[in-house]
């Protein structure tokens, strides 16, 4: 496992703003603005606030699934820092492969790839031997409670809960520098939830910086260093 230098700044968000322009309505849907915070290696930041306040939107904006309107998202990678708000698409794609993880309750299952191969893939891409990667993949599938006879099956045929375990095992097998967690426990059973929290603790220990949105924050209470509370703001109606 890599070790990220604890205490070093991983993410510095300054004045980040996001709203959605809905052309067919001639409206802007406001999500958040003036969001600023700093996140260091090994820190766990919990996003809080009422439903619909834009917690997931903030995660997705940092991940660049959403394009922000203003502000900077300075991400420190191995050799410097880059503003995720404005970085080239191919750079974002590269960071997503190597440095930034995103876990949601939604699995994008790929047809006809065995569960253990899906989980092993990040390790293979990082240069680990096939045998070793498979070994670790099986370990994590077992840890998250996926039955042994499913390891070689295609997750497309799994139940939602089992798919989610495969999803988690894959997302958490290789420690990213920054891990974004969007209600990852939503459809998990108790055993898998416990395994996940344990894994998050491991990752935190090696210096992974995490930002999470949790429906039941109690699960991860022991890991949380700080809260960030997003405030609701009324929807602006802007004439076209």
């Amino acid at each position: 496992m890599p070790n990220f230098e604890r205490g070093s700044v991983v993410l510095q968000v300054d004045g980040l703003a996001k709203s959605f322009r809905m052309h067919h309505l001639g409206q802007n849907l406001h999500a958040f603005d003036h969001v600023s915070f700093t996140l260091r290696a090994g820190e766990f930041l919990l996003l809080k606030g009422p439903n619909g306040v834009g917690k997931s939107t903030l995660l997705r904006t940092i991940y660049r699934s959403y394009l922000p309107q203003a502000g900077q998202v300075w991400f420190s990678h191995g050799a410097g820092r880059i503003d995720l708000a404005r970085a080239a698409d191919v750079d974002i794609a590269l960071l997503r492969r190597r440095e930034i993880g995103f876990v949601t309750q939604f699995l994008i299952a790929r047809p006809r790839v065995a569960a253990e191969d899906i989980v092993a893939e990040p390790l293979r891409k990082a240069g680990m031997s096939a045998a070793e990667a498979l070994d670790q993949a099986r370990h994590w599938l077992a840890t998250f409670g996926v039955k042994r006879d499913l390891w070689r099956a295609y997750p497309t045929s799994f139940s939602g809960g089992e798919q989610q375990k495969v999803n988690l095992a894959r997302a958490l097998i290789l420690p990213p520098r920054l891990l974004l967690l969007d209600e990852p426990t939503a459809s998990l059973d108790v055993g898998a939830r416990a395994a996940m929290v344990a894994r998050l603790a491991d990752l935190k220990a090696v210096g992974v910086a995490m930002i999470g949105v949790f429906h039941h924050p109690g699960d991860v209470a022991a890991l949380v260093d700080r809260d960030l509370v997003l405030m609701a703001k009324e929807v602006d109606d802007v004439a076209v």
């Binding site: 709203s19 322009r21 802007n28 394009l67 922000p68 309107q69 203003a70 990678h77 880059i82 503003d83 708000a85 404005r86 970085a87 080239a88 698409d89 191919v90 750079d91 590269l94 960071l95």
Partner: peptide, 13 residues
Amino acid sequence: MILLERLAPELLT
């Protein structure tokens, strides 16, 4: 609506 202008690739060599 103003969008932030995207930069040229820096990381991808």
